[in-house]
Design a protein around this nucleic acid. Structure first.
Length: 874
RNA sequence: GCCCGGAUGGCGGAACUGGUAGACGCGCGGGACUCAAAAUCCCGUUCCCCCUAAAGGAGUGUCGGUUCGAUUCCGACUCCGGGCACCA
């Protein structure tokens, strides 16, 4: 054990305390993870950071939560694995390269080195021997290897997909790089473009991924609801509208999917996406349609943009036939119909679908009412102000009249099936996972394009396909395309010259299985080995709520694929999930003339407020010119609103920063960043330090004899053990670290108030101080290590056993009961802890203030909540 | 636009299963110590009424409901945050 020097023993010097603690932990190897018996393993995992440059407060929050749980579980006897790694591929490294000309690899590795140092300075018990960086070929070769397995199984496949195209930079843009429909650097109007891409068939796992949510009791309800809605299972009917041969000039049928087949007789037109084959066929004969289709291709591809854009449409002049009535229905092109969803076509029922209603009114298309609400009359189509969307009774539909919505769906589906013009189908909102990225800084997709053999998978023996690390992107396209040493290769099948695929993988691939690799990071022969089945599934996963859907769903999918390939023996990767709320800060920005956006740090602007004290804008400190206010948002490098914790760590020490973070707010809530309160956390540690110094100055405390205690000593001891019970529950079950800290603060307040120098008084105090040190070790491990030593204890506190409350110490003789009259608080009475209902009732009625309110009234009812309150209803 | 959350004193938050609203901390006010300041310690601190206290009244984003009793449950709404498939 490293001893503190004399000066430190009196003053709270966070640097010396930290140095001594770290030396002690290195001696006892506190962070090392080893497997002993299977039932004591505990895998505590935090989402790995993107190495953006410096830690921000969101990281500190995330990793402190993980470390608190890790240290708590260790003190409870578990063999804990807490690893760390780097989500090291991605767009910011390319942006930094464009800005500074530094290759993404160097920028990334420098950031990792700096951030690793920062994490170490915060005192997290991380097993660094397992560190993984996803940009390391020893890691990403296994992305490539599994991708090839998925190709073999047909889970990975190639098809076209839509991307944002910047016509000026001649490059594909990420959704984040499209602002108000324009490229962020060029300001050019972005276009949609169809290109070939590789996809992973997550939709074939949709049902399993949905059903398994019911067997994840350790996941937050809100995350499970979001995932279920995202997967979006819906039962409906696929309906075929035969082509009208006269106008289309070909046989065939237009397929649509609908959940409201009961309204089929109300369909008055059909709408197809701009990219639909029927649209293209019609455009071949009509230049106006060509122009309209081009118009539809403007703008970005996000669902939010598509859902809020102005609804536009144009008649193709083509017709299809109604499958039941053979009526001619016009085919329209509509920009709200998406090629990527379902069949890229919808049947339109303006009377019973709000979007169709608005579209029909705008373009003068007819309405047919075919449903009435159960209580109401049949509405007149001309008088309708909005669509009647709810289920009801079918009307104006011949043989289906009088049926309910549910009955009519069945009847229509049966009839369509009889005519071979459709049938019931289950569809999912979930789409297959497109993983191709036209970017440099990512994992190369292991495919070779041969003029003779086509797309040839890279043989396993040639893995990894190594990404050259010395390229620097310039903003126009992927530099890999121009890197001949990378592109040119021999076809593995025929040996003739061929070209490598230059697309790289989505970075969500990297983060879909990194947590398995920690268990076997040293294995260079296989993706995973038996150690993965020993450590996994992860017992506790901790990360931001922003990952509730994509990352967590992809990881669940990837795990199932590996399970089905026989690589792992579990199907779900994360048993318990804690979704941390975001750390928010103000966002300030300026829009450039061409549409680009520049963000400014809140430190560099002076906010302008209105009379209500709300921020409406700001001026830049350097140039005095106005800056726009963008509200509160997640701390991130790209929005320039991250706060580097380093200054606080330097000033107050890691323990103060950790303690403050845990005390400020419960983990699931979002946190609007403010430094107010850091001083308070620091003051608390100093007060605790002083209490221990004062106590040990009078020499060792005598042995505690609980039979010898007076009332005050018994009461303090009761509070000590009540605090142990509360903190254990708050950390171990509730994950309410803020109230755990508050409870130790209350205990310290009680200790400071009691001034008992008697032998048993000092014995109680010794027990109290030892307990506080143990209870605070997960949050403030450095300080508690020193306190432990000062209190004369052997060994490292981080390896000590978590305290258990003594049931005898918790016993109370009397309790306070609250008395209400008509639900309003009118008094309190003390009763014996074992008093029965009648005694409690009598004590309540005897209370003078209660009598004032009861006098002259009849008591109609008496409600007694044992141990809590009495309510007299008069 | 759609899906998921949230809103409690001057501020961060507590109240765990429908039972004392405001624990704990910050800030602020007053006092002690000091030549003085910092640090530290003590007292007070939801609002209204009131010299003060006791007692009382109001009060958990807004409006309405269920209940002996609602921050907690139900309905409608407002604002804020997260996600929307190429930010990670």
């Amino acid at each position: 054990m490293r001893q503190l020097n004399d000066k430190t023993a009196h003053e709270f010097d966070h640097r010396q305390i930290a140095d001594a603690a770290v030396a002690t932990w290195n001696e006892v190897k506190n962070a090392a993870s080893k497997i002993s018996e299977a039932d004591t393993k505990y895998y505590c995992l935090c989402m790995l950071p993107y190495p953006s440059g410096r830690l921000h407060m969101g990281h500190v929050r995330n990793y402190t939560i993980g470390d608190v749980i890790t240290r708590y579980q260790r003190m409870n006897g578990r063999d804990v694995l807490q690893p760390m790694g780097w989500d090291a591929f991605g767009l910011p490294a390319e942006n930094a390269a464009i800005k500074n000309g530094v290759p993404p690899a160097k920028w990334t590795y420098d950031n990792i080195d700096y951030m690793r140092k920062q994490l170490k300075s915060l005192g997290f018990a991380i097993d660094w021997s397992r560190e993984v960086a996803t940009c390391d070929p020893r890691y990403y070769r296994w992305n490539q290897w599994l991708f090839l397995r998925m190709l073999e199984k047909g889970i990975a496949y190639k098809k076209t997909g839509t991307v944002n195209w910047d016509p000026v930079d001649q490059t594909v843009l990420a959704n984040e790089q499209v602002i108000d429909g324009r490229g962020w650097r060029t300001g050019a109007l972005v276009e949609k473009r169809e290109i070939p891409m590789y996809y992973l068939g997550i939709t074939s796992y949709a049902d399993k991924l949905l059903k398994a949510l019911d067997h994840l009791p350790g996941w937050p309800e809100r995350v499970k609801i979001m995932q279920a809605n995202w997967i979006g299972k819906s039962e409906g009917v696929e309906i075929h509208f035969p082509y009208d041969r006269q106008s289309i000039g070909a046989d065939g049928a237009l397929k649509v999917f609908t959940t409201r087949a009961d309204t089929l007789l109300g369909a008055t037109y059909v709408a197809v996406a701009a990219e639909h084959p029927l649209a293209e066929a019609a455009a071949a004969r009509n230049p106006q349609l060509v122009a309209f289709i081009d118009e539809c291709k403007k703008g970005g591809v996000t669902e939010a943009e598509l859902a809020t854009q102005e609804k536009k449409g144009m008649d193709t002049g083509l017709f299809v036939r109604h499958p039941l009535t053979d009526e001619k229905l016009p085919v329209w092109i509509a920009n709200y119909v998406l090629m990527g969803y379902g069949e890229g076509a919808v049947m339109a029922v303006p009377a019973h679908d709000q979007r169709d209603f608005e579209f029909a009114r705008k373009h003068g298309l007819p309405l047919k009412v075919v449903v009435r609400s159960e209580a109401g009359d049949v509405l007149a189509a001309d008088a309708m102000r909005e669509a009647l969307v709810e289920h009801g009774i079918i009307v104006n539909s011949g043989v289906y009249d009088g049926l309910t919505t549910a009955q009519a769906i069945d009847a229509v589906a049966n009839e369509l099936k009889k005519r071979s013009l459709g049938e019931k189908r289950t569809v999912f909102r979930l789409r297959d996972w497109g993983i191709s990225r036209q970017r440099y800084w990512g994992c190369p997709i292991p495919i070779i394009h041969c003029p003779g053999c086509g797309d040839v998978p890279v043989p396993d023996r040639d893995l990894p396909v190594v990404l050259p690390e010395d390229l620097a992107p310039d903003g126009s396209g992927n530099p890999l395309v121009k890197c001949e040493a990378f592109v040119n290769c021999a076809c593995p099948t025929c040996g003739k010259p061929a070209k490598r695929e230059t697309d790289t993988m989505d970075t969500f691939v990297d983060s879909s299985w990194y947590y398995m690799r920690y268990a076997c990071a040293d294995n260079d022969q296989a993706m995973v080995d038996e150690r993965v089945n020993q450590w996994l599934p992860v017992d506790q996963y901790i990360g931001g709520i922003e990952h509730a859907i994509l990352h967590l769903l992809y990881s669940r999918f990837w795990t199932r694929v590996m399970h089905d390939l026989g690589l792992v023996n579990f199907e779900e990767p994360f048993t318990n999930l804690l979704t941390q709320g975001m750390v928010l800060n103000h966002i300030y920005f300026r829009k450039g003339k061409s549409g680009g956006i520049t963000y400014f740090s809140p430190d560099d602007v002076t906010p302008v407020m209105n009379e209500q004290g709300q921020i409406t804008g700001a001026t830049h400190k350097a140039d005095g010119q106005p800056v726009e206010y963008g509200g509160m948002g997640t701390m991130s490098k790209s929005k320039a609103n991250g706060v580097d914790p380093q200054a606080l760590v330097d000033k107050y020490g890691a323990d103060t920063v950790r303690l403050f973070m845990m005390f400020a707010v419960p983990p699931e809530q979002s946190l609007e960043w403010s430094e107010a309160g850091v001083e308070g956390a620091h003051r608390f540690l100093k007060r605790l330090w002083k209490a221990v110094v004062d106590h040990v100055q009078s020499g060792p405390a005598p042995k505690l004899d609980s039979a010898m205690l007076n009332d005050a000593q018994r009461e303090l001891r009761r509070q000590v053990h009540a605090t142990i019970a509360k903190v254990s529950d708050d950390i171990g079950r509730r994950y309410m670290f803020n109230t755990a800290v508050a409870a130790t603060m209350e205990l310290l307040n009680a200790i400071t108030r009691s001034d008992d120098a008697s032998p048993q008084g000092r014995a109680v105090l010794q027990e109290a101080l030892e307990s506080i040190a143990l209870l605070l070790t997960p949050m403030a491990p450095h300080t508690c290590e020193a306190l432990w030593q000062m209190l004369g204890k052997d060994g490292a506190i981080v390896n000590a056993n978590w305290p258990k409350p003594d049931p005898e110490a918790l016993v109370r003789d009397t309790i306070e009961i609250v008395v209400q009259v008509n639900g309003k608080l009118r008094g309190r009475v003390a009763v014996a802890a074992d008093a029965d209902r009648k005694q409690v009732e009598q004590a309540a009625l005897a209370e003078p203030n209660v009598q004032r309110f009861v006098e002259g009234q009849t008591i109609r009812k008496v409600i007694v909540v044992p141990g809590k309150l009495v309510n007299l209803v008069v």
